[in-house]
Write a protein that binds this DNA or RNA. Structure first.
Lengths: 346, 346
DNA sequence: ATGAAAGCGCTAACAT
DNA sequence: ATGTTAGCGCTTTCAT
């Protein structure tokens, strides 16, 4: 029984509801938005008429008239990175009930694409913007400043924010891991990561890492960057190749947990003693890893907290537009798992 | 040198550009949209003025005036399922260059949430809707019908579409896997899946599966459903528990590849002969699996093709509004991997 | 508690 | 090739 009255060519308007209920458009509008005093009798009439007709308000007209749009633009590089869906989840959760709605835009790590997505989103006059990273193009930064709405740059704090920012210092994170590795006595260190010059956060971690090693008089023995394909498989392949090239390696640092997991699986298969013969560490604290035979050492990127805090900043700025910009630096925690020696090494 | 002229309290309008360039608003509008004939000289003037001022068009006003919105609402249950980001990617790719922009809404598998998200999105008068599944609430279906815009229900074809649909038959997929398993000689079969009564597609696969087994005179020996947590870890735990309860089991069917991978890792660790002693199969063909020590048998859900086709349907319907609704059933392929016997079993 | 009028920033349709 | 006019469907503001 799916047959319904033939769908209207012209979408319904307030006027239709007004006529159907015998109440002025203005009062209909009041009822539908729960604003102003309306008698229970009229409210009832209006609600019934609206529901019967199947009226759906036109937010475009509403937004134009009220100069208010309950949208928050969220601009991220990718949906397949896992990290970002999690941040999104936190933003959604936190915005829920506030009347604000997140809208996602994906840039695929391309600055020009980012610029375009930002432009597109700003043209809908959202109430705020949450955007990943601090490295937008000049033009994009100008747009954000000119927009006059609250902007929160997330994930990273190594740099200057346009307005507010929430994240971790990836440089510091890389350094910390480097220090820890040296402390545990590892000396022959290899690095694997993505071939993405535009993944600034991975780059900063790498810089911090090599810097910490340099301070300890250690240089990276080998490094390799990959591109596309299954991260797990790439981790496995790169690890095999690298250990083959450099049998002396005693530690492998991966720029993300997925390739780290691939490397771990490979080592276990080969019967390599982990972390005795070779230590391993990744980055991110991906929940997925819980199911592996051993826990990969990693560092938590504070994804949920970042999303949450960013959403809170937007909310409070929307309510009180003359609040000051804020910068929040969160501190990622190392988890040693089973692939990084814990005692003083030797 | 990040200091810029103080951001305007009032966003710029066409009128500002018009005044700055000494050209009528209408002509400015023409230039900015590349419509109608405009002399190179004026175009130049306008573009310069717009760029200098940092003008960003107001799509709200534009949409209201033109009665056209270049947005396609995409409504999916989750971003953490991997499957959906992939479908999204296909939709994005396919829409790219068409002038249409996807906008995502996430429902968390909750019908009432889905209804609300749909309402919210329809109130922006998008050009089309792509929505996962065929099981929306009555009210949601009514909204879709009344909207008068193209609707494509995706993923599943076991049921009646409101308008168009693209997907696979999950019931048939489950049946096919069941038949294959019997054919290979497995007889003592266990099932593991998510505890989600609202994941209709998983349910349908399960139904098809048991139906096929029943036809072969076989009944499922054991089943278990999980909830939350790391899928990989859950797969491992459930597999351990189930094999412990039922040492006779010779096949395990998982409702998704993630828990299947967990089970596979467990079996390998335990030195269980796969697929000789125990066969395994999942569902989805997640790229991630490429890095596992063995390839899990699985079935491709045609995610990319689904997204692509759905986007194409929307595109062509937007261009030519009196095209007929279509239903497209894609055929998922079994990949045997290394965990399902290939020869005639015994 | 309800209604009337004006206008949000743009574009369609029609001049010129 | 460019300008003018009249709305799009709501909400704001001001009456009543």
């Amino acid at each position: 029984m799916n047959s319904r009255s033939n769908p209207p060519r012209r979408p319904l308007t307030l006027r239709d509801v007004s006529e159907a209920s015998g109440v002025s458009e203005m009062t209909v509008s009041r009822v539908l938005r729960n604003r102003g005093d309306v008698s229970d009798a009229t409210r009832e009439k209006v609600l019934t008429a609206a529901k019967t007709l199947g009226y759906v308000p036109n937010k475009i007209a509403g937004a134009l008239a009220s100069q208010r749009v309950n949208l928050v633009a969220v601009i991220i590089p990718s949906l397949s990175n896992m990290v970002f869906p999690e941040v999104m989840g936190a933003i959604s959760d936190t915005l829920d009930g506030s009347g604000l709605q997140p809208v996602v835009g994906v840039t695929n790590y391309k600055p020009e694409r980012e610029e375009q997505v930002l432009y597109e989103m700003l043209s809908w006059r959202p109430s705020g913007v949450i955007i990943a990273g601090l490295e937008q193009t000049e033009a994009a930064q100008a747009m954000m400043v000119n927009s006059g709405i609250p902007i929160v740059q997330i994930m990273d704090v190594d740099g200057r924010a346009v307005d507010s920012m929430v994240g971790i210092s990836h440089r510091r994170a890389g350094r910390k891991m480097g220090q820890q590795i040296l402390k545990m006595g590892y000396q022959n260190i290899g690095f694997m990561g993505t071939k993405m010059p535009l993944d600034h956060r991975a780059r900063k971690r790498f810089e911090g890492f090599t810097e910490a090693l340099a301070k300890g008089g250690v240089e990276i023995l080998d490094k390799e960057f990959y591109d596309g394909g299954s991260a797990l498989a790439k981790g496995r392949e790169m690890t095999a190749a690298m250990l083959d090239r450099n049998p002396d390696l005693d530690f492998l640092y991966y720029s993300n947990d997925m390739i780290g997991a691939g490397g771990l699986l490979y080592c276990l298969e080969q019967g390599i003693d982990v972390p005795g013969r070779v230590g391993l560490a990744g980055f991110n604290g991906v929940e997925l890893l819980d199911g592996l035979p051993r826990q990969l050492a990693t560092m938590d990127a504070c994804r949920y907290e970042i999303g949450q805090k960013a959403a809170e900043i937007i909310k409070s700025r929307v309510e009180n537009s003359d609040e000051e910009p804020v910068s929040v630096e969160l501190t990622p925690k190392i988890s040693f798992g089973d692939t990084l020696k814990r005692g003083l090494g030797g």
